[in-house]
């Protein structure tokens, strides 16, 4: 199973980038995640010390004061009511610890939330849908889905990507653990978030707020690449779909079907808004918001019956004939 999956990933269009599949919050690769990691360490140190001290005390007490076989059963232990002094000590010391923790928390909260963007900033709008992500780059005129391309941030050229988070239906949450903690995508409320990945690579994330039936399969990938690669990608994405004469028939089939009611392919009759933009479908690594790797076989299976691999999703089984299916898949595969 694992090998199969690995094989599938190898065939994906950008094999050159490292894929960070294990989203360990203790291996942060961007500033917000780094700050959160630092304070996490701090809290581990403090709570760890408290745990050792208190658990040690409890266990010592349990062992030391257990009733022994040779105990004099005719004696009750001393009846001690309490000690205001000891109690004051173990009230004031936690207050001290909490006081320090609050100070540090305040600083980190402010440093992450109130950071001002550096000059060279990419801005994008991330819109949550049940159960996929719409990604818009207003400055580049690009619309894509489920994969966020961002330039990597180098020491010399510090670049942050600012995300405006919106939702068209219910609450979703952006979470790519190695880049940043969560921020929710809430309808009727604009949220912001910034990331500055330090290493090129593919970072995996999930929707982290329960958003309905297929919440589990609302996966997200952030693809951090060199500035030049990013610019090239954006330019590619801006173009409308290829108008190749050879695929005219396949395209006509596609346009005749109800696909066009929900999906957009720029430069064609397909202008639906309900589903992801398909103009450059084949440049993406996955299908169905991360359910399947984007391969020919998977694409065919997906178009044939999405309910098979993502039960409950809003793309219905189209009940296409084999011929229609062949043509639609053939057409989609031209959308590079």
């Amino acid at each position: 199973m694992l090998a199969l999956a690995a094989l599938a990933w190898l065939q994906s269009p950008t094999p050159a980038l490292t894929e960070h599949r294990i989203a360990n919050i203790f291996k942060p690769l961007a500033s917000p995640a780094e700050s959160e990691y630092q304070i996490a360490l701090f809290s581990f140190v403090i709570t760890g010390a408290i745990f050792v001290a208190v658990a040690g005390l409890i266990i010592y007490t349990m062992v030391r004061f257990r009733r022994r076989r040779d105990d004099d059963t005719r004696q009750e232990p001393p009846q001690v009511y309490g000690s205001n002094q000891i109690e004051a000590a173990w009230t004031v010391i936690p207050i001290l610890i909490v006081f320090v923790l609050i100070g540090v928390t305040a600083r980190v909260v402010a440093s992450v939330e109130n950071a001002s963007p550096p000059a060279s900033t990419v801005k994008l709008t991330l819109i949550g849908h049940q159960w996929w992500w719409e990604v818009q780059y207003p400055d580049f005129g690009v619309v894509t889905a489920n994969e966020i391309h961002v330039p990597v941030s180098r020491d010399g050229a510090h670049t942050a990507t600012y995300l405006q988070l919106e939702s068209v239906d219910v609450i979703h949450s952006f979470w790519v653990p190695q880049l940043s903690g969560k921020t929710d995508l809430i309808p009727n409320r604009d949220n912001f978030l910034w990331i500055d990945p330090r290493e090129p690579g593919v970072y995996l994330g999930n929707c982290a707020e329960y958003c309905g039936t297929q919440h589990a399969n609302m996966l997200l990938r952030v693809i951090a690449e060199e500035r030049s690669d990013f610019e090239r990608w954006a330019a590619e994405q801006r173009r409308p779909a290829e108008q190749d004469g050879q695929i005219g028939e396949a395209r006509a089939t596609f346009e005749s079907l109800s696909c066009v009611n929900c999906h957009t392919v720029k430069g064609t009759a397909a202008a639906g808004k309900f589903g992801p933009d398909l103009t450059h479908l084949m440049s993406r690594q996955t299908l169905g918001a991360g359910v399947l790797a984007n391969t020919g076989a998977n694409l065919r299976a997906w178009v044939n019956d999405p309910q098979q691999s993502k039960p409950g999703c809003f793309m219905p089984s189209m009940k296409l004939t084999d011929r229609e299916l062949d043509q639609v898949v053939a057409y989609l595969q031209t959308l590079k």
Partner: peptide, 22 residues
């Protein structure tokens, strides 16, 4: 005790941005 200490971790807002809903 463990629950209380992980509770402190969750109360630290920046750490909670990672841990929330996980």
């Amino acid at each position: 005790l463990v629950a209380g200490l992980t509770g402190i971790m969750l109360a630290i807002a920046p750490f909670d941005w990672q841990l929330h809903d996980s």
